[in-house]
């Protein structure tokens, strides 16, 4: 599936979660914490909210709970 991560085009297999996709393409962080630390997913199960990214312009989406869709636009912080 074709998707845009931080304005760069990538292809990832269908069924991949957004979290896995972002890790596959090696971004420095998913989000920045309140004090500016880079953060990555932690719990992998939608509990900790560390893996939040902006998906199709909607901020604060839990990337570990959402599978990639064709043409999805993902932004990390």
């Amino acid at each position: 599936m074709k998707l845009l991560i931080d304005n760069e085009e990538f292809n990832v297999p269908a069924g991949t979660t957004v979290a896995a996709a972002v890790m596959l393409v090696d971004r420095p962080s998913f989000r920045r914490s309140v004090s500016g630390e880079p953060r990555f997913p932690l719990c992998g199960m939608g509990i900790c909210f560390e893996c939040r990214v902006t998906i199709d312009r909607v901020a604060h989406q839990r990337s570990c709970q959402i599978e990639v869709r064709e043409g999805m636009v993902i932004e990390t912080e």
């Binding site: 990832v12 297999p13 069924g15 991949t16 979660t17 979290a19 896995a20 996709a21 890790m23 596959l24 990555f40 997913p41 932690l42 719990c43 992998g44 199960m45 900790c48 570990c64 599978e67």
Partner: peptide, 13 residues
């Protein structure tokens, strides 16, 4: 990651 958390992420691709 959490231990189970890492497994879940791997299951997610």
């Amino acid at each position: 990651f959490g231990a189970g958390g890492l497994q879940a992420l791997v299951k997610g691709g």
